[in-house]
Write a protein that binds this DNA or RNA. Structure first.
Length: 616
RNA sequence: GCCACCUUAGCUCAGUUGGUUAGAGCAUCAGUUUUGUAAACUGAGGGUCGUCGGUUCGAAUCCGACAGGUGGCUCCA
């Protein structure tokens, strides 16, 4: 039943794309159409009004009103077919050059090609893929479109919708092509479903990491420093340090050793690795004022690490050699690609590289996958694993055979570890395939966090070797891995995931003491408790301000401090403390009292164990 | 980089069709108060309305450029 509903919703959304096109054609005659597929929660249509006209969001009211007319008329969606050549003639006649291009592709290749997510959308082959004879069309009133369908029966049957936003989109996803205007709408079967969805978006905005970053005083961005260059406050720096420490700890358990490399290097390093060729437009360049040296801010760390490996002759007995470095890399990202902490120009990676023998690959990958699974279980985030393969473009280094076997090895590792996965071509690094851990943010956008990458190319280009058992020189394999990925990006997702309610082990402020009054005895007592908690390694603060207890409690709640303890005469007399526990941590029991030693000891232990619920 | 939109105190926002010294709440500071689990009272300071240029007798308001931001597209080692 659910399937049938999904199919019906899909048909509604697709039909709404046509209805929107119908409306736009009435409002802007002569508009050229691109494609108009269904996407998650709705639909879009790409349109080109020519050089002199642009749709803006102010036009939505007008378009929606026109769409309402089409819906009210309740005209049928009529399907019909034409031979390809007649269809091409139709496109020429109708002055729809984009449709004509699609039809020509269909005729020539039997498909509208490639990477386009909407291959299915673009019109269809009614016979077999090799013999394109007829293509199907749908017509609703005065609008006719090349389309595979299916649609609802008539324009009246489309549920609830709302136009959301407008964006530029390159024709067929290629930067070199004309840019069209993409108009997005959301659509649901009922008004209620639509309201629920819009409400969810509203809620998601409240937990946006940029908003929480400001409210909880975690990071700041300054125009004087520049865009994409966030700075972390004392509180935000606690988050960075805690998650990085966890990530390091997981790998140090598996024999990784910390290394350190400088942040600038001669560009020769990247010419050798192959990065210069591929990424030279996105490197920050630095010039020495004394010598003629042209230096590069490091955009990644693997080439540096190969230099440490290569600094000594290595024996098969030394392998695997495992390096770990949490360090900041610099990439000159295009301005339009920057956003919050997701995409920055100074990104900190918890980077690591294994140099190992062929027969050690499996074990090493298993260790890394186990570490990734453990980390994401502790932070409570559900991940999808993407196997990122190459496509048949020439953007990759290394032989086809090597690629085929390393892709197979990664898949085998993922299957053996029973991870939920999907495969995608064209997502690999230029030097090798990847296992990418994907996570979804508050409004449903998917980001890569952890990654494990197999690399035969850089060992070759850097001429890495080790002495094998038989005394011959052999080439090691590199396995790149970051568990958090970019710490900035990880935090952006983690802040949204927790809505700022960090578990004790990451909470910037774990305990806050609130004094009932400002009398000497109270202040002194609070000071003693603070010192005791600090001895146990807790991050604690005291609020002695001249405000009502209620107001100070509220301030602690707003700051999402896990444990708040009010101290006054009662505590000074009895010695026992009653913590106020943040809602998400508490198990459903009435508040209990503890000695200071017990209370702080338990909290310190929870932090150490990285638990997500309190035992208090 | 491209497309659309946005930018008023530290924060969240008002500011009618361009018309005297640009407002509020929170936050900050001062005074009163000495507080018992989500906001005590009174007062004060704080803004060249993102920047620069233009139109106008007059610009927060209209136009342009630039910067920064948001949502997409492209890219992501």
């Amino acid at each position: 039943m659910a399937d049938q509903n999904d199919d019906n919703l899909h048909a509604m959304r697709h039909s709404l794309a046509h209805i929107m096109a119908t409306a736009i054609q009435r409002l802007w005659p002569g508009v050229k159409f691109g494609v108009g597929p269904v996407v998650e929660n709705g639909f879009y249509y790409d349109v080109d009004l020519g050089p002199d006209a642009k749709i803006s969001e102010d036009d939505f009211e007008k378009i929606e009103a026109e769409m309402a007319e089409v819906i009210k008329d309740n005209v049928p969606f009529e399907r019909f077919e034409k031979p390809v050549d007649e269809a091409i003639a139709w496109a020429q006649e109708a002055e729809q050059p984009y449709k004509e291009e699609l039809l020509n592709d269909l005729k020539r290749a039997g498909t509208t090609v490639a990477k386009d997510l909407d291959a299915a959308e673009l019109g269809t082959i009614t016979e077999s893929a090799s013999a394109v004879e007829n293509v199907s069309f749908y017509k609703d009133g005065d609008f006719t479109d090349l389309c595979r369908g299916p649609h609802v029966e008539s324009t009246g049957q489309v549920g609830a919708f709302k136009l959301m936003r407008i964006a530029g989109a390159y024709w067929r996803g290629n930067e070199k092509n004309a840019q069209m205007q993409r108009i997005y709408g959301v659509a649901f079967a009922t008004d209620k479903d639509l309201r629920v969805y819009l409400n969810m978006l509203e809620e998601a905005r409240k937990r946006d990491h940029r908003k929480l970053g400001q409210e909880l005083d975690l990071f700041v961005i300054s125009d004087l420093v520049g865009s994409g260059l966030p700075m972390f406050t004392p509180r935000g720096t606690v988050l960075r340090d805690e998650v990085a420490a966890f990530s390091n700890e997981l790998r140090q358990r598996h024999g990784f050793q910390k290394v350190w490399t400088p942040h600038i290097t001669k560009k020769d390093l990247y010419e050798t690795s192959g990065h210069w060729d591929k990424f030279k437009d996105q490197l920050f360049l630095v010039t020495s004022q004394e010598t003629s040296d042209e230096l590069v801010m490091k955009p990644m760390n693997c080439p540096h690490h190969t230099r440490i490996y290569a600094s000594q002759p290595r024996s098969y007995r030394d392998l695997p050699i495992r390096y770990l470095e949490t360090t900041t890399d610099y990439r000159d990202e295009k301005t339009g690609e920057l956003g919050g902490l997701n995409r920055v120009r100074a990104l900190t990676q918890d980077d690591s590289h294994v140099f190992c023998r062929q027969d050690q690959i499996e074990q090493e990958i298993n260790n890394l996958l186990a570490s990734a699974s453990e980390l994401y279980a502790v932070v409570g985030m559900d991940l999808r694993v993407r196997l990122s393969y190459r496509d048949d473009s020439d953007a990759y280094l290394g032989s086809q055979e090597l690629w085929a076997s390393s892709q197979a090895q990664l898949k085998q590792a993922v299957v053996a570890n029973e991870l939920k996965y999907f495969e995608e071509e064209g997502e690999a690094a230029f030097y090798g395939p990847k296992i990418d851990f994907m996570v979804t943010d508050a409004i449903g956008r998917e980001f890569q966090v952890a990654t494990v990458q197999l690399d035969f190319v850089q060992p070759d280009r850097f001429g890495l070797e080790f002495a094998a058992e038989d005394g011959s020189q052999s080439q090691p394999v590199m396995i790149h891995c970051a568990l958090l990925g970019s710490i900035e990006r990880f935090l952006s997702v983690y802040i949204e995931h927790t809505a700022g309610k960090f578990p004790v082990w990451v909470a910037p402020e774990q305990v806050r003491l609130i004094s009932v009054n400002q009398e000497d005895a109270t202040v002194e007592f609070a000071g003693k408790l603070e010192a005791l908690a600090k001895d146990k390694g807790l991050r604690i603060s005291v609020d002695n301000s001249n405000e009502s207890v209620g107001k100070k409690i509220r301030a602690a709640e707003v700051a999402k401090v896990p444990y708040t303890v009010v101290v006054g005469e009662k505590e000074i007399g009895g010695g026992e403390l009653t913590p106020r526990i943040r809602g998400d941590l508490a198990v459903q029991e009435p508040a209990k009292s503890y000695t200071a030693d017990e209370l702080f000891g338990t909290i310190a232990n929870e932090a150490k164990m990285r638990v997500s619920k309190t035992s208090l």
